[in-house]
Each structure stands twice: as C-alpha cells, then as structure tokens.
Design a protein around this nucleic acid. Structure first.
Lengths: 169, 169
DNA sequence: ATCCCTGCAAAGGGTTTGCAGACGC
DNA sequence: GCGTCTGCAAACCCTTTGCAGGGAT
C-alpha cells in the first residue's frame, strides 16, 4: 500500500466512525469499544467477508469479541448503511463495506465460487420501471450472474486455473 | 379449474414425467414411486413452495415420504431443470416449477414478503454483455427487487392491506 | 447507579448424513 | 440377489437467544 492509499484509508475510517457515532447517538445505542473495533476491522480490508472471517480476524488481532457481538454489530452497521449484506451461494451471508462504494452487482464463478463485480445502469432502469408497473417503490435489489469461466489454451479456467468441466446437457 | 385447464395440466404432468424418466435412466438413477409422486405433487400447484410445504402436502395426500427423500428428489429435479430454486429472504429455499415457464424475475414486498413476478428482456442483455466483459459464460441469474408497497387512500398497502410504515431515515 | 451490552453456551431452524431395512433393477 | 433409495434420527452449520456479569451513560 502506498502512503497515499494509507492516508485515504485513514480518512475513510474516520468518516465511517463519525457516521456510526451519529447513528448510535440518534438511536440511543451505546458506543462500545467492541463496536468501533469491528467497524475498524471491516474497513481495513476490501472484498467480501462472512461472520466467521471477521471473528477470526479480530482474534488474530488479539481483540476478543464474541460471535454474538459480531452479529449484533453487523446488524447495526447494516441498519446505518455502512455495510451491505449478500447471500451468494447456499450457505452463510457475506458482507462488504458500503461507504464510498458505488452501486454494483455480482457475477459468481460456478466453478471456484469467486465473486466478481460489475456495474450496469440498465439495472436501475429496470428497477424503476418494474416498480412503476407493479406499484411498488423499489428500495434495493440484488442481481447475481452465475457463470462458467472460459477455458484458456490448456482447458483451464482463465481466472482460477482449475480445469473447466464441460457442461453435460 | 376448467376442463381445458385440467387437460392441459394432465398433459404437462405427462411431459414432465417423461423428461424425468429420461433423466433418471440417463443418469442411472432408480425410478422410485416416491420420486414420481413428488414430481406430480409439485406440478399440481402453481407458485412457490418450500421443502416443508411439499412435505406437508404429501402427508395430506396420505403419501408418506421422508424429508430426506424430498431433498434428494428436489436435487434431481433441479439437476434436470424441472424445478427452479430461489433464496429470497433470510431463511429456507423456495422452489417452483420450471417446465413450460418463461424466464422471469422476482419483486419481493419488504412488508408482507409476497413475491411478484416480472419479465424484462434487458436482463438477458446485461447477462451476455457482462459475461463477455468478464470472460465468462453466464448460465443463469437471479434478480430480486425488494420494494415497499405504495399506500392506498387509507395509508395501507395496496397489495396486502397492512398499514404501510414510513421509512425512517 | 442504571440497565444495556458483552461473552458464553445452549437452543433453534433448515439441511445433510449415517445406518438398517426395503425395493428397483 | 445386488446395490441404492428410503425413512428415521442424529449431526451439522449458521444464527439467535438467555443469562449473569461488566461497562457506558
């Protein structure tokens, strides 16, 4: 990480802390060290994480929080819009930072389960058009594309290197 | 149900049974009565259902199947494309018939959780464009719009009649 | 000092698994 | 008859809950 990035990261962290503080005060919630420590940890990385990832990371930092607190804090962060929640595969929820990130959707590699991001303005158009049609106000959406990687010259996945299986039908 | 609908339903059931048989033979799976009974039950209703719905329906029909068999059979039906699986809210998976239904997506009322269907050809365009861009072959997708119902003259949901809550922020 | 938040561990709900017996092949 | 599918129940995983003690206000 460059010095510039580090500075930017620090600024972001300060901003999200401020937002969180305002939210907690407004909602008469206590500003506990655990909650800020979790927020800090979340904004120290990019990409998706699940509850256990976060729990383990905190442990490695020698900052002990219980899973219950992780869940509790994530609920608060979801509620104040600092974190987004996704349900990709079959199991556990995935989360990601939400502050300062622009709207995007996800393509999931069916082979290696890696998640890629993309943007397309037409999704907004579809949302509002369908809301209009069905008489709803769309608040949010989730679009997941599930896809097979293309083969490289060795027949392996260009992304993850695993051999690409042929589809059967 | 009109006589015409009944006839159509019967035809559909025969067609899906034939597809299932072909699939089972091809994949060296046994053609057990439980599997056909479940397929039949699934194609006797419209709309979404979860594993327990199906299990209960079978029980009411006095056809005893274990939950394990329901899961097993649903896996097979998913694999041969006769059933589609969805993960709407937080919990359990939902399923629906897939044969003879055109591609559609879902709008979920955040208030009453009722699921509405819609179609928009632009989603296909987005899928293929993004596949191209990221070098994947998109096999399927899921688009969920989460939305608040609009209020009627009494401030209630036009769809479900429950009072529409104001959003807080 | 209050009482909400935390940690811990147990409970919960949906799904999967292991095993013995049944049955499609 | 062989091998696998079924039913049953226990195991599993992620998440929620209950309770006693500690810390924010």
């Amino acid at each position: 990480m460059t010095a510039k990035d580090a500075k930017l990261l620090k600024e972001t962290k300060m901003e999200v802390r401020a937002i969180f503080t305002t939210y907690l005060e407004k909602n008469k919630q206590r500003r506990t060290p655990e909650r800020y420590a979790l927020l800090d940890e979340i904004y120290s990385y990019k990409g998706h994480f699940d509850v256990d990832d976060l729990y383990i990371k905190m442990k490695k930092r020698n900052y002990r929080v219980s899973r219950a607190t992780v869940y509790n804090t994530l609920d608060l962060l979801l509620d104040c819009g600092l974190v987004k929640k996704h349900q990709f595969g079959e199991q556990g929820s995935q989360f990601e930072q939400a502050y300062g990130f622009k709207q995007h959707d996800h393509l999931i590699c069916v082979q290696c389960k890696k998640v890629h991001e993309f943007c397309d303005p037409r999704i907004q158009q579809i949302s509002s058009k369908m809301g209009e049609l069905l008489k709803f106000n769309v608040t949010h959406h989730s679009l997941h594309l599930y896809a097979m990687p293309r083969k490289d010259e060795n027949g392996d996945c260009e992304q993850c290197g695993i051999e690409v299986k042929n589809e059967e039908n």
